[in-house]
């Protein structure tokens, strides 16, 4: 089978039974691959920002693919349960078929309007936090009060530390009054 015949068969399938889910899923799939790739190729952004944005974009599109499929199919199945009154059975069948296609379209639109944004706002943040834990946004360094106290204590000159109590021989400077003749502003 050559290329034209294959293409012809695809076109026949698209002409006979076009589903609203096909184009939107295909777009989401290609977007899910291309958008993160383009983001990673951007040389003006920082590597961390690029990774975060690319992962976020990819996740959004990969959440969208199954959502479109499920919403479209569920809506189409609901339409199949419809029964039109006062119409012959064959007309009813064709009307149900039409309703099923239209409902699939409504399902896809509902997914785009409500379900995907809602799912993304609920699911993306925990996933992002798991894969790429963010540094705290607060620019002020968090001070560990205990450590701060220790540092303050270390910086204070302890007069007693000059004398090593374990050493019986007293250092020379300990015998004289080091503060004698001290002037304001220097030792």
């Amino acid at each position: 089978m050559n290329f034209t015949n294959r293409l012809g068969k695809i076109c026949d399938a698209l002409g006979t039974n076009p589903k609203a889910t096909y184009p939107v899923m295909l777009i989401a799939l290609v977007k899910g691959i291309c958008r993160p790739t383009f983001t990673m190729m951007d040389k003006t952004e920082k590597p961390e920002t690029k990774k975060y944005t690319a992962l976020r974009e990819g996740l959004t599109e990969f959440i969208a693919i199954p959502t479109y499929l499920v919403c479209g199919e569920v809506a189409a199945r609901i339409a199949k349960k419809l029964k039109f009154k006062n119409v012959p059975p064959d007309v009813n069948t064709s009307l149900v078929k039409r309703a099923s296609k239209n409902m699939m379209f409504i399902g896809v639109c509902t997914a785009a309007l409500f379900i995907i944004p809602a799912l993304c706002s609920v699911a993306i943040k925990p996933i992002m936090d798991k894969f790429m834990p963010q540094k705290p946004k607060n620019n002020k360094p968090q001070i560990d009060t205990n450590m701060a106290n220790k540092i303050t204590t270390l910086n204070k000159p302890d007069i007693n530390s000059f004398a090593d109590k374990s050493n019986p021989i007293k250092p020379i400077y300990n015998n004289r009054n080091i503060y004698s003749g001290m002037k304001v502003g220097g030792v």
């Binding site: 293409l7 012809g8 695809i10 076109c11 026949d12 399938a13 698209l14 002409g15 006979t16 076009p18 096909y22 184009p23 295909l26 777009i27 290609v30 977007k31 291309c34 958008r35 383009f38």
Partner: peptide
């Protein structure tokens, strides 16, 4: 219903949608 005509137009639409929205639009 000339399904081949419709299918060809739809295939063009889908190809255009993918190229346009996923590659050109960003």
């Amino acid at each position: 219903l000339y399904t081949r005509v419709k299918g060809t137009i739809e295939a063009g639409n889908i190809l255009g949608s993918v190229l346009g929205l996923a590659i050109l639009a960003p």
